[in-house]
Amino acid sequence: MSSSTENFIQGEVKERIDRWIAEYPEDQRQSACMPALRIVQECHDGYLTTDLMDQVAEYLGMAPIAVYEVATFYGNYNHQPVGKYQINWCNSISCYLRGGEELREKLEEKLGVKTGEVSADGKFSIKKVECLGACGGAPICKIGKDYHENLTEESLFKLLDELE
């Protein structure tokens, strides 16, 4: 356990995790590791810490290292602070073929932020991701839980301007 001892898994966070635990056989709490990490991350400004992973481990009765394994294997878990809006930018072939890479460069320019970084005001960060499975709408990105498809410079910038 790292230094922070504040109990994060309580109240609503706990209830949400418990709902997932109920989806699996009783002796398989570990199955809820992925949803638990996602929920904890969502409620912690979008990223995980060692302390949070330890708490998940404890809550699910897993070895901490087993949780670290999961948390570092899957691409959607963040281990560094992210922007209030994390722009998950698809980097794969169909988006690439339809100008995704050029558009990302424009996005970086507009936000004044490089991929992998957080804007100075903490509002945006850009993360390169692999195929988002919506190639018919390429180029696309995912912000929060929403997909934005058929992006053009215009539609993308408009979208960003509308985000609070």
Partner: peptide, 20 residues
């Protein structure tokens, strides 16, 4: 009977260790 080492990360970034 005590998982202390693991393989974190994936692909080339997979590392064997204690992570912390």
């Amino acid at each position: 009977g005590m998982m202390e080492l693991g393989a974190t990360g994936r692909s080339e970034w997979m590392e064997i260790g204690t992570y912390i």
